[in-house]
Amino acid sequence: MEKIQDTNIQILKQCSGENCLDNDLLLINNIKDVPLPDSARRTNCIMIGLCTQGEARYSVDTREFSVHPNEAFIVSERHIIDNFHLSHDFEALCMVVSINFFHEIIRNVSEMSALFLYSRNHPVMHYDEKEQHIFKNYFEVIRSRITDNSNHFQKDLIRTLMLAMFYDLSNVIYRAKQGNEKSQSRPDAIFTQFIKLVEDNCRQERRVSWYAKQLCITPKYLSETVKQVSRRTPNEWIDNYVTLEIRVLLKNTTKSIKEITKDMNFPNQSFLGKYFKENVGMSPSKYRKS
């Protein structure tokens, strides 16, 4: 069986030649200008777009979706997208965000994180006229900041603008969620509760069994449910949040690695270093200098 290829920012940058911020953020004026793959692709990034005209049809993990004018769409990481069909007049603005940059931006807003988790299974939402105008304004302002390399605080400024945009987008997701609240499945509810627990406790707890106990279910059932909903294991989610916490501490504080080891409840620096390198590809000290 042929291996499913990844789609990430680096690949899309090569195809689109649009405005980008390192390998963290890419803005595409019209996603139709990016050559469509002729086979299934696994997303290794997060795509947020707004359809302005025409129609697009595609499948996410074999589920079919369609996007029409005035609708926003979100494609989250680790999904498999396939069966693209775009009308001849299709146009859509699109922001592509790296997974790490996305989590850096929303890491301290737990309700926002939960709403984006909801959008994994409900990726298409209607925008009213005012919301469309706001999204387009964000797009243009962020693009102007990407091209302004003279600003010493460029990345921090863009991160702040993205957070503001995510607040507005989260409000749209919240409205859609309220309308579908009664129909939320048990697996979706368990997954949302699990992620909230991980966000609140990942500095101290990395055991799947501990999270299962808090949810009053077995570790096996938790693993099966999380994998069913998100295509990732509980351990992958825990590692993702733990690694993000370490990355933020390394980059945004002057704490020593010994202090970070204690903060993150690792038995010693060697253990933390090995864990970090396995997940990030470099040692904590090298990451701090990079």
Rank of each mutant, 00 (worst) to 15 (best):
V172E: 08
I80W: 07
Y138V: 00
S87W: 02
V280R: 00
D239G: 10
R288V: 00
C51R: 02
V198G: 03
H103I: 05
C94Y: 02
V280E: 05
T253M: 04
E224F: 08
K251V: 09
V124G: 08
R57T: 11
V198A: 04
P35D: 02
T147A: 10
E64M: 09
M282A: 08
K13H: 04
T243D: 03
F116Q: 01
N235M: 14
N121P: 12
Q178I: 06
K13M: 07
I146N: 08
Y127F: 15
S113I: 15
Y118D: 00
F191A: 04
S223P: 07
F276I: 00
E111I: 12
T243C: 03
I80V: 13
T243I: 01
N137D: 15
A40P: 12
V75M: 11
Y221P: 06
I158T: 04
A72S: 15
C51Q: 03
F65T: 02
V248K: 14
L12G: 03
F102K: 00
R232D: 12
N201L: 14
V141E: 12
Q214G: 07
C202M: 09
K274D: 09
R107I: 13
R57P: 06
Q184W: 05
I238V: 04
T218M: 03
K3D: 10
L21A: 02
N19A: 14
L161R: 05
Y211C: 01
K155D: 12
Q204E: 15
S87C: 02
A72P: 07
N252Y: 14
E129W: 05
R107F: 13
E111N: 12
T62D: 15
F102N: 00
S39T: 12
H103P: 07
T254D: 15
A189N: 13
N108F: 06
A189C: 13
F73V: 02
D168K: 09
E224C: 04
A164G: 11
R42D: 01
V248M: 15
A72M: 14
W237E: 02
I46W: 05
E71T: 04
V242Y: 07
I260R: 00
N180Q: 14
R63P: 13
A114S: 15
K177N: 06
V141P: 10
Q228R: 12
R288S: 01
R78M: 13
Y127Q: 03
L36S: 13
I46K: 06
Y241M: 07
N137T: 13
I11Q: 14
V67S: 07
K136Q: 15
L86F: 12
L36T: 09
K182W: 09
K136H: 10
S87V: 01
N83H: 12
Q184Y: 04
I238M: 02
V208Q: 10
N121R: 08
I11F: 14
S283N: 06
V172A: 05
I74P: 11
N8K: 05
K251R: 12
H133Y: 10
S87I: 01
T218Y: 06
F191W: 06
Y58K: 06
L161Y: 15
F271V: 13
E199K: 08
Y221D: 13
R63G: 09
F101C: 01
E181R: 08
Y58I: 10
V141G: 06
V141W: 06
